[in-house]
Design a protein around this nucleic acid. Structure first.
Lengths: 208, 208
DNA sequence: TGACACATACCAACCAGTCGGTATGGTTGT
DNA sequence: ACAACCATACCGACTGGTTGGTATGTGTCA
């Protein structure tokens, strides 16, 4: 049972969750220590284990927190304002590309993709939590794609869900290349290829 | 100085490297312990630190070993047999998709993508080793793409290197989705989208 | 006064890496 | 031919530091 607390100064719990988003994306989940999390959040170890019964539980809660935060961010983004769902989709891809600008790699990358790489085999609970987060976001994109498809390409052989997951695959893979090169610009290049793919699928810009 | 040993029974060193490819892809690099590596390889800890001065050095050597092994595998693959480089490229993508069949997730996924996620920030040496491995493979694909481009789309605005890196991004991202779902078939779907993108870029199958 | 939200001190397990020692096969000097 | 010497390969008990987690104390507020 979560009780909503005073919003003016962040609760210890949310300080720890925010610390987790930062530190885990930088260091990875396994290499992140509880002490490091406490240091970053500015709280003690006692406070940590008061709010989370284990490091794993913090991980699961962090995926929920992440899904909530990013969900709100995407819900408020301006790409929804286009009338045509195809315009929304293209604008979403452009938005994802813009999100890379003026950010460090840990800030730009996805908590869920980072965590699931390490835990998919050793920790089914965390794996499932990451899956839910990824598919929740993919679901919102699938809705846009489904609307765009029924308007612009109703007879296409691919599914809206499949294409939505593909957009997430490209974005996740772009982050891996960016990490390997220590340079986010390569990720932007790959997302541009994704944009071009969608343009070609829908003949975008070739119709009047 | 590496001295070539008897090939009939694998050396302790290669037993450890093979163990690393398995265990690291399953467990992740950080969560993999030296003891676990030794148990899997069937050697003692003394042997481990005789051949590698640290766990990090094993990691670097494992990326080299991986790049060598997979490089030989791709060099021997049949997609090179097509005369038209565009046919080679399409066949390469199909080959990558086939590689997912009849394999578990740890067997199918990429050591370098897994390792670089965890180490890009904390271990520059390992990050660089992973980058070299990824870009070595991407380079071989870029050659094929460059040949296909000059024959079929010489005026296209995208670069061969960029598209080659994009293919690797899609494949790496597909692995992340597969790990999150604990199901490789989603990765195959994403690679099919990659195939369709290349077909559209080159108007493949629409010319006679 | 008692429940909640922490703080401090502590612990047992684990882990990378060390170290003294052994087995074996090749080289050298006589 | 053979002893002396040495390098490589390997063994496994041990260590010092770290880590996730616990036990217990303390201030605060309803």
């Amino acid at each position: 049972m979560v009780v909503f607390m005073n919003v003016t100064q962040p609760s210890t719990r949310s300080k720890l969750l925010n610390a987790a988003l930062q530190v885990v994306r930088t260091t990875g989940f396994e290499a992140t220590t509880v002490d490091e999390l406490c240091r970053t959040a500015g709280v003690t170890k006692g406070a940590f284990f008061h709010h989370f019964k284990s490091k794993e539980e913090l991980g699961v809660e962090a995926t929920r927190y992440w899904t909530e935060m990013t969900g709100a961010m995407f819900a408020a983004a301006s790409y929804h304002e286009f009338e045509d769902p195809l315009d929304q989709l293209i604008a979403y891809v452009d938005f994802r590309r813009q999100l890379l600008e003026d950010h460090s790699i840990p800030e730009a990358t996805c908590l869920l993709g980072t965590m699931v790489q390490e835990t998919y085999s050793s920790n089914p609970v965390l794996r499932e939590a990451c899956r839910i987060g990824i598919e929740t976001h993919a679901g919102t994109i699938a809705e846009i794609i489904a609307a765009a498809k029924s308007r612009h390409a109703p007879k296409a052989s691919w599914s809206a869900e499949g294409l939505a997951l593909h957009t997430q695959a490209v974005i996740q893979g772009a982050f891996i290349l960016a990490k390997a090169r220590d340079d986010l610009s390569i990720a932007a290049d790959s997302i541009l290829h994704l944009r071009r793919y969608i343009e070609l699928l829908f003949h975008y810009g070739k119709e009047e």
